[in-house]
């Protein structure tokens, strides 16, 4: 065998190792969709929380049981729409890659994503119902970031740096507590769109 053949062997080994452990069908476009839904959601949430207020006065987030319900509906709607877009687009990409969309790699990635995400979600709800609404944006950002870092071992490597960026934004949001919604829109909206476009171009999803 010559060098070229050995190089090809090494390339194949790397590809097999990565394909057998990582969920590679993650679609970049789904990030763009999730980001756009998040921006719309954040805008609706802004309208809900800061309604009926004088533009010139100090603006305080007003949470009544009614606006709380509206917020939860917006949040659930955003989440469901993002998930549906993600599943549909990843399924399409899996077909192109000729792999099953629901394989053990996908399962492994999702389990690792959802362990921190679930814990963070419950914790945010506890804070929310105890009246500490300011904690929701930083907590969801931080735990989502931790989930991504955790899941990145089982999917495209870019997810790791996206996770770290979400964690940093979450910590900043915890310090600048009044600007939670802006950080939330940055983290779940803008970052998703930027990463989605980068990954779409890189992997031609």
């Amino acid at each position: 065998m010559n060098n070229q053949a050995y190089l090809e062997d090494l390339k194949m080994i790397k590809e097999m190792m990565s394909r057998s452990t990582r969920f590679i069908s993650l679609s970049g476009l789904s990030g763009v969709f999730a980001g756009s839904f998040a921006l719309i959601g954040a805008f609706l949430a802004y309208k809900t929380v800061y309604s009926n207020q004088d533009y010139l006065q100090f603006r305080k987030a007003v949470i009544t049981s009614e606006t709380l319900t509206t917020l939860l509906v917006i949040a659930t709607g955003t989440l469901v729409l993002s998930l549906v877009a993600g599943i549909l687009l990843s399924r399409r990409k899996a077909k192109k890659n000729m792999v099953k969309p629901w394989n053990s790699q996908a399962k492994r990635m999702l389990i690792n994503l959802f362990i921190p995400l679930f814990a963070g979600g419950i914790l945010s709800l506890i804070f929310l119902f105890k009246g500490y609404i300011g904690m929701v944006a930083p907590l969801t950002l931080i735990f989502y970031g931790l989930g991504l870092v955790n899941a990145s071992k089982y999917t495209l490597t870019e997810i790791r740096s996206l996770g770290i960026a979400e964690i940093i934004l979450g910590l900043l949001a915890a310090h600048f507590i009044g600007y939670g919604l802006i950080f939330w829109a940055l983290g779940f909206g803008i970052l998703h769109i930027v990463y989605g476009i980068i990954m779409h171009l890189k992997y031609k999803s």
Partner: peptide
């Protein structure tokens, strides 16, 4: 065989 072994190394 190389491919099988690569995959089994990491799973």
């Amino acid at each position: 065989r190389l491919g099988i072994m690569s995959a089994l190394m990491v799973n």
